[in-house]
Design a protein around this nucleic acid. Structure first.
Lengths: 343, 343
DNA sequence: ACTTAGCACTCAAATGTGTTAAGTGCTAAA
DNA sequence: TTTAGCACTTAACACATTTGAGTGCTAAGT
């Protein structure tokens, strides 16, 4: 257990290092801290904190910087989320605007607002419930040889994709295909759909002479619906605080972030409170100097989504966590409004 | 007019500088060039070239680097596009794969292939003809309160968007709206559509009590159809040869590229041959160290699209131009195939 | 048992000093 | 017109020196 004085010192080191990015020395703290103690005493305390692994030196005679464990301790035991003032909340509310036609738009907008507010990279995941079923299926003829395939899932998501018909397919054959699909796969969970559809392949082949293209199109649209929808905003902000000598490393980081699959992994978040993951706690070594603050939000009926901020390890956690928490409430409300408005 | 020897020297400087990025000196060239002349003679020739503004020094005693005018002269008068060997063409063909369901997919894939091949940033614009008309309009009911609005334009583009109906709209009212739109605006050019639609507003208001949302949705989907579709691939490659340590500048560059409107401007290309724009010839000062190689391609019936490579001023123009030219043919063929397959 | 002044020590960063290598321009002779 | 030769310039590098902020340790003071 840390003494009161050690807590003060640790907190001051973290605060100052967050603001200035420079190692913090004992004389500085002596001047600054509201405690009566000489720099030598502070040095002793610092040595103790270092032995506990909470702070570290960059070289043998440098000031101290918080270690990862230090941040962990700070986040878990010292820091209190900053209260977000009403003006800021108002601001968020305004940024959302109104008139969303899809939940995806709300989620995408969330990422944009968050990256604007924090100047970090923001990530948002669309709410997802455990069991999504295929709820509707349409094929809308567009031209002689084209149809638009539309899937509706039980969480209200609508995905569409063009499909070019093979030569010589007639309207009634198309009708038959629609009927087959409505009979056989509508109502199933999305994971079962593809398997079931393959079972029905002989049947479909009867109407569509060459069903490969159709299966591809259907598969790709189903993918869109199944895939965790991830929205990332403010990627370029990563450049601002990258120790960026090496362009290759940044390229790698970007491509990591662009692979939404990775991000899905990264964000695993079992609901509840705002969570902070630091450097080595993140799945990829590329992120060892970064830190991820994430929060799950409920959409009221279907499931949970996630919003997150990816920034430097020395970010102002108090502010960011406070913001994310307030934002989460705002977002939940927005989604609630959206569904409300729909019924 | 330059002498034979001056041409050789200029060409060698450009070639070597492209490969190594280092200023080129007279002694080097003496060793390397297949002409009988001492370094002093070459120095004299270099002085002449410098007086013509074709090459420049970084500092008073450094070797020479090509100036922008030098590149211009090289591209216009010296360089011949490299012949692309059959293997490479085969490679391109393979990268395309088959089975495109939309022209957009072909165009987007083009950007991807080009940035892969060159390791620069590639940009592609979808073909656009002068006069696009609205050719079809659908509203597909999805749930009780949602419809999917679908527009088809005369160039075969299909765009869709969800629209949440105001409360208390019934099927027959929706039918009426569809009929109004089909009667009044289908067949018009896209630019006229919005104006005409506003004329019909009283009529629409009769059926949709609050038509604002609908007008918004219709407008935004029309925007999608009208807006020049720009695809950019390999943005991170810009990092590889950015010689600037300033993240802010790169951020600015990225946001420039993300505003597709800007890119549309940038790319203006009156068809014909492959065109090269260097540094200051580009619209934005941020691009002064970059160079844009672009080519227009025909899609056989509707109009022209553009493919382009954005890279450092000292790129290997011969290769890039040769590649772009060959790629253009390949792309034209692909689009031809696409439409062929559709009839 | 803490605290603290004082001191020797460390290290990064800034500054200064040569040295080298690659280059230039100019001149005078071939 | 060409070229050898020479004086000059500059960036890049290696190296030493100084400075400033910081450290650990010790011995004396509370």
């Amino acid at each position: 257990m840390l003494t009161e004085r050690q807590l003060l010192i640790l907190e001051a080191i973290i605060r100052d290092y967050t603001n200035e990015g420079q190692p913090i020395g004992s004389k500085r703290l002596e001047r600054q801290l509201p405690i009566h103690a000489s720099s030598a005493t502070i040095r002793n305390e610092m040595a103790a904190l270092e032995k506990l692994g909470l702070i570290a030196k960059e070289h043998s005679s440098s000031g101290r910087i918080p270690s990862e464990r230090g941040y962990r301790y700070y986040v878990d035991h010292i820091m209190k989320p900053a209260k977000i003032d009403r003006g800021a909340v108002q601001n968020i509310r305004q940024s959302f605007g109104n008139e969303f036609q899809k939940v995806d738009e709300i989620v995408a907008t969330s990422a944009r607002i968050l990256s604007d507010l924090t100047q970090y990279t923001a990530i948002s995941l669309k709410p997802e419930s455990a069991d999504i079923r295929l709820e509707g299926f349409r094929m809308v003829p567009i031209g002689d040889r084209q149809v638009m395939v539309i899937l509706v899932t039980s969480d209200g998501t609508v995905e569409s994709q063009m499909y070019n018909l093979p030569a010589g397919i007639h309207g009634d054959e198309l009708e038959s295909v629609i009927r087959v699909i409505n009979d056989k796969v509508v109502g199933l969970s999305l994971n079962q759909v593809i398997a079931k559809l393959h079972e029905c392949l002989p049947l479909i082949t009867k109407y569509l002479h060459k069903p490969d293209g159709f299966m591809d199109a259907f598969g790709s649209i189903l993918d869109k619906a199944v895939k965790k929808q991830v929205y990332v905003s403010g990627k370029t902000n990563l450049l601002s605080f990258a120790h960026w000598e090496d362009p290759e490393q940044i390229k790698a980081l970007y491509s990591l972030i662009d692979q939404s699959a990775n991000l899905g992994m990264l964000l695993e978040n079992r609901g509840g409170d705002v969570s902070v993951k630091l450097g080595s706690e993140l799945s990829d070594a590329l992120l060892s100097h970064y830190s991820l603050v994430s929060a799950a939000y409920d959409d009221g009926n279907n499931g949970q989504g996630i919003i997150a901020i990816l920034g430097p390890t020395n970010m102002p956690y108090s502010k960011v966590i406070g913001l994310l928490d307030a934002f989460r409430d705002e977002l939940t409300q927005r989604i609630f409004d959206y569904y409300q408005h729909l019924n």
